[in-house]
């Protein structure tokens, strides 16, 4: 295989290094400094001492070298805001985001694929029209507004669902957690759901026009069998690629969803770290997200080969 994949891996590694340098340079060259130096009751002298103790007076190159050297040894550093190891912070937050991302992806798949397939089969029928309009709205709706509106409806007005948190520390069990997960997962999944519906539909429309499907139909193979045996498999191949693109986006989208619903995940960690200029945390998150993007597209390539035997690398 793997010549092609290996070269891609090498390219990706270079990319990660470049991204880390750019990010570091950006942060370090910015005016001001980490929030810990700007507490209202910290005087200028104390702030200067803290800055020195944090090594922020050193040249940027020295700071980057120090950061990279530690990273090579597997040390992501410690948060400037609270002295906790960055690896610990990310470890504690990763689960919450993964849970949210998986839930929203699952929800998106469960909703989007059947709708997309059905739309394609009944092309231009009333179902297709409604589904297309719905998907169109789903792509355009700002998810932070959707989140607030859902809070207004389900928490404020109806009182059915909690407006934030995970329910993990409350006295509830899995049911309680599910109730907490429902709105954030839906909000985060909306755009994915809409895009998947569109891709599935158009991919299925193309496949249904192809010769082998027509041949199967002409031979009198029942519609259901044509769909499941022939069309679906081929129609979903492009959809897999799209999922590879959408998964990393879920992590970016999480920044907003998590902020609305007080969800203790990586997205909110990113927003907080950006606002507090907590350099080690920002750098570590940059790495994590970049690696995630690369791994996702990598996995998609491999999956692609598995699903479609015609594709071979090497």
């Amino acid at each position: 295989m793997p010549k092609y994949l290996l070269s891609r891996l090498a390219q990706s590694a270079v990319l990660v290094v470049i991204v880390s340098i750019v990010m570091f340079a950006l942060i370090a060259s910015a005016p001001g400094g980490p929030a810990i130096l700007y507490q209202e009751d910290v005087d200028a002298e104390a702030a200067a001492t803290m800055r020195r103790n944090l090594g922020l007076d050193d040249p940027i190159v020295v700071q980057y070298a120090r950061w990279a050297a530690a990273l090579v040894q597997g040390d992501l550093g410690t948060s400037l805001s609270n002295s906790r190891p960055v690896a610990m912070l990310i470890g504690q937050r990763f689960g919450a985001t993964a849970q949210l991302a998986l839930a929203s992806l699952g929800l998106a798949l469960v909703v989007a694929i059947p709708i997309g397939v059905l739309s394609a089969v009944r092309r231009n029928g009333w179902f297709d029209r409604i589904a297309t309009a719905g998907a169109f709205m789903g792509v355009s709706i700002p998810n932070f507004w959707l989140g607030i509106m859902m809070i207004v409806l389900f928490s404020v007005t109806l009182g059915w669902l909690p407006s934030g948190g995970t329910g993990a520390t409350g006295d509830g069990g899995w049911l309680e957690r599910l109730r907490h997960l429902a709105m954030p997962a839906f909000v985060l999944g909306t755009s994915t759901m809409a895009q998947l519906t569109r891709y599935t539909r158009s991919s299925m429309v193309t496949v249904l026009r192809e010769d082998f499907v027509r041949t199967a139909r002409a031979k009198g193979v029942p519609q259901r069998t044509v769909l499941t045996r022939h069309a679906l498999r081929n129609g979903l191949i492009p959809v897999v690629t799209v999922i590879g693109v959408l998964v990393p986006r879920l992590f970016s989208g999480a920044a907003i969803t998590e902020s609305i619903f007080s969800w203790p995940g990586l997205g909110r960690l990113a927003v907080d770290a950006a606002l507090q200029r907590d350099f080690p945390v920002i750098m570590a998150l940059t790495l994590v997200v970049s690696v995630l993007v690369i791994v996702a597209s990598f996995v998609v390539d491999v999956l692609y080969a598995v699903i479609d035997p015609r594709i071979r690398y090497g």
Binding site: S12, L15, I18, V19, M23, L26, I27, A30, P31, G32, P248, F251, S252, G253, A255, A270, V271, A274, L275, R277, I282, L285, T286, V289, S290, V293, I294, S297
Partner: peptide, 18 residues
């Protein structure tokens, strides 16, 4: 390269920092 970095996150940091 630009397409494969998490842009919203990047945007967030740039806006917060600058």
């Amino acid at each position: 390269g630009m397409l494969s970095i998490p842009l919203f996150f990047f945007l967030l940091v740039v806006m917060a920092v600058f």
